[in-house]
Write a protein that binds this DNA or RNA. Structure first.
Lengths: 202, 202, 202, 202
DNA sequence: AATGAATGAGGGTTCATTCAT
DNA sequence: AATGAATGAACCCTCATTCAT
């Protein structure tokens, strides 16, 4: 087992413990055991419990941004397509990594102040992506919601919630789920495709 | 200070600690101190930490149902009005009792199995209220969402999220907030008022 | 329930708890509950935990002496008959009151010094009764044991042990048991009835 | 100090505390202090208070069986010699290790059910050794007691009791004590040496 | 790279007891 | 005669962490 494998095994174990019990109640001994290592080994790889939490949150956010940036890169330049990309990335992330997803939402309070700052910056960045897209759509009249901020929060909240109830293997596939949530998101922002122009053009 | 006052002071203190640190990390000593009582007094009123959590969750859910049932009682018999009542109650609860609200969402995992069962029954009841209303609206064609279950979850999630960001005292009043979220919810379920009647009337 | 009933209920409950868990581990709350009284009521009747223990030991010893003195009173003046009386009383006490019996042996260590002194005086008195009888028998050559002290301790020990294994209701009745232990005790002191004289006389 | 030394120091300290105060009243802090270690160190070596008790009882029984098996190995094949060996081993054990001896008798009630089972098996084995020997002697008419079971219990009880009163350093040496108790035990089982053979031989 | 040993602080909980009523 | 409320001390145990090796 390489050094990198050990690190991964440890944050996987730590994440699982944190999700099951919460950061405060999780035991560093249980984490080491779950990762199949000695307690001392854990301290060789990570400075402590807080360090594990930071690593987990960083890893989770990095993974999310990998999803969202890839989706944005493959989307056209239309705000609706951008929103579709973001929702799609968000759902995909939460479906494929429910633990990574839920811990981000729950355990930020356990971050020590200096680590909290960095986390909040990242989170704001994620939120900003939605904000930019929705405002762009509103600006050109493509999204007609009178409450863009609330709409943004609603879309993010409903995507986040997926991690809490969706279990793969049912009859609802990931792609179907994404389709639905894209549709819901477009509804929320009151998407009105510009059929008139198209109509005029046709 | 009456015996009942002591109990209330304790669950208030406990709720605050649980919200700030999480159930696992919260200290029963800190709770007693926060409530201005000795540690032993706490144990005189509650059997233990878990008992405090149970009391908090029960109280939170009871408060929510007080809101929702009152709102339903004052609503007409139209599904749209029912949905409006539920959203309105939910927002009101989360705005007025953000701690009661957020702890319900977060700390269910810390319940011991036997207590978890009761909690889940209550939670399901709350969810069912939304389900009934949305399905009724869909049945009569008032709500046209093709995904009633996802719409329900989206509406609940976006209402829940309000507790995490809304702070009273800003320029956005509670009533304005409710108006917006009612509007968003009706959008999500794709509410189409029956213009026929209006047509007839016109 | 009279005041005296309450006191009896309490020491019965306390004795049971002490026997089951040991003095140190026994809980005064459990005792009150077992006696069907409030904690405060217990303190009304007894000064505290130690007071209960003292009462129990005193009661146990008093009961034993009631048995032994009655038996001695009904015995003839022969040392063998006296020993028979003491063994018989001891066995009867341990069979009828196994809890009273076993607690006396076990929990003397939990007595505070001033109470211990009184207890030890009583215990010595019980031991002395055996000592007197055996020495009397040895003096007149009726008991031929070369080790009267060890014989005394052996007789007492074997009687005490009865409380630990005898359970009434089996095929071995109390009277049969007594007969056997009297026989054993006489064997231990090497009882030799003076048949020669009788022989000569006959 | 080696790891094994620490373990020994701990069970010695624990045994002393348990004997003085009883298991329930003994404090794990006092044990650690008595052993000259920190509280945490104690928990490094033993899982808890109960674990210490189990270790103590196991050690005590093991020590006793070491004595009894050695004595039996050095004895001839005659039941009287066997009984002599067992009594001798029992007395030796109780004289040399009075704490190990008395705790075995007293604190079994403090064992949790799963540990109690193992303990009772061992204790039954010790009792069985006496039983086998006495029954063998009775079978061939060497022991004439009409009550072999009661005789067995009496012999065991009188040996056990030695731990409670014998203090070395007096004028009664260990060997003298053993001689007396062997004699008492043979008296109890009503040992009758087979003089016939001797007669034939003479 | 990895470990066994050890620590001090703090965890939740229960204790015997007191006191105003 | 009897109680509910409250207390401070102590309980057993687990914690995150360090350090010599």
């Amino acid at each position: 087992m390489t050094s990198s494998d050990s690190r991964v095994a440890l944050i996987d174990a730590a994440r699982a413990e944190f999700v099951e019990r919460g950061y405060g109640a999780a035991s560093i001994r249980a984490i080491a055991q779950r990762a199949g290592m000695s307690l001392s080994a854990l301290y060789y790889y990570y400075k402590g419990k807080q360090d594990l939490l930071v690593a987990i949150l960083e890893d989770g956010l990095a993974e999310y941004f990998r999803f969202s940036e890839e989706a944005l890169a493959n989307a056209g330049d239309d705000p609706a397509e951008h929103l579709e990309a973001l929702v799609s990335a968000s759902i995909r992330f939460r479906v494929r990594h429910p633990a990574k997803s839920s811990i981000v939402a729950t355990e930020a309070r356990s971050l020590e102040p200096e680590n909290l700052a960095a986390y909040e910056r990242s989170e704001a960045r994620g939120s900003q992506q939605f904000k930019d897209v929705i405002e762009a759509g509103v600006k050109i009249g493509l999204f007609q919601t009178p409450y863009p901020d609330d709409a943004r929060r609603a879309v993010i909240a409903m995507c986040n919630a997926v991690a809490q109830w969706y279990r793969p293997g049912g009859e609802l596939t990931e792609d179907m789920l994404i389709e639905r949530y894209v549709s819901l998101a477009l509804t929320v922002v009151e998407y009105r495709p510009r059929t008139t122009r198209r109509g005029v053009a046709g």
